[in-house]
């Protein structure tokens, strides 16, 4: 079933258009930076962006930091929101379940397909970032940490892998929320909007001092903590909280999705 879902994901034009659109933003930024040579002052703008003019090898991270707060979550919410509700809408859900495909199996296969989509998108963004960074931007072997000390290429590489893993986990949280909404409605946009509303509310509450007590529990609170992985020494505190928190969100919403989907009447 997992193979079937992956094949569905990859044969679908929508998947590739979404990835291309997500990829377009960082590429545009790189071109603009290369043409104008005007970077944001250090400490302002998206993470790493001020450093990339000098060292293009940091651009994959800068690209990731650009798409992570908005583009990627929207794409993930749309894909995961479509998972069950989309099948319900086209009417194929009843035929899959009558084939039969176990409901738990279907849910797992859908989740795996969403993770594959996230991985694919993150890898494409990072790879494109690497190529345009090397071609268009500075090649001074700066390889500096955010703290100012220098890192070896090797250190930078494994920290980048860690950061990618962290971003994927954050998106897994989004996917779980959207998947849950996808099991309670037959409308894919409805499910995606539900998940996005959740994230937008979270982002909004993070800027509100009165919501201080809530903030540690909001799903977007630690999203950008992966920057800490590039401090010297690594600042594990927020990253650790982030991993823990996303884990709880994933378990909670996947559990709810499973409980709902396996006991529900399929009337679509």
């Amino acid at each position: 079933m997992i193979v079937v879902e992956l094949r569905k994901l990859l044969t679908r034009p929508r998947t590739w258009i979404t990835i291309a659109l997500i990829d377009a933003l960082p590429t545009l930024v790189a071109v603009l930076l290369a043409l104008t040579d005007v970077g944001p002052r250090p400490g302002t703008g998206p993470a790493f962006l001020s450093a990339v003019l000098a060292d293009g090898t940091l651009f994959p991270l800068a690209a990731l930091a650009m798409v992570l707060p908005l583009f990627l979550p929207v794409a993930v919410a749309l894909t995961a929101g479509d998972a069950i509700a989309g099948e319900a809408q086209t009417g194929t859900l009843r035929y899959l379940l009558a084939r039969p495909v176990g409901r738990t199996r279907l849910l797992v296969a859908k989740l795996v397909a969403v993770i594959a989509f996230v991985l694919l998108t993150v890898l494409v963004v990072a790879a494109t970032g690497f190529v345009v960074g090397a071609l268009l931007l500075g090649d001074a072997p700066l390889s500096s940490s955010v703290s100012g000390t220098s890192l070896t290429q090797q250190e930078l590489a494994w920290r980048t892998v860690l950061a990618l893993g962290y971003a994927v986990l954050a998106m897994l949280g989004v996917a779980s929320i959207a998947l849950f909404f996808s099991t309670i409605t037959d409308s894919p946009p409805g499910a995606a909007m539900g998940a996005l509303a959740f994230l937008i509310a979270s982002t909004l509450l993070l800027t509100l001092d009165a919501a201080n007590a809530l903030q540690p529990y909001l799903p977007t609170r630690y999203w950008l903590a992966f920057v800490d992985l590039f401090r010297d020494p690594i600042l594990w505190r927020d990253v650790g909280f982030g991993v823990l928190q996303q884990g709880v969100y994933v378990l909670l919403f996947l559990g709810a999705a499973w409980a709902n989907f396996t006991t529900r009447d399929i009337t679509s």
Partner: peptide
């Protein structure tokens, strides 16, 4: 259910795939 064939409230298929691909996907799913 593998020994049962069903048509429930009208047919359904993925529009962007061919008839053959649709059947192959459904066969692989079961």
């Amino acid at each position: 259910l593998p020994q049962v064939g069903a048509l429930i409230e009208g047919p359904a298929a993925y529009g962007h795939l061919s008839g053959r691909s649709n059947l192959a996907l459904l066969d692989a799913a079961g």
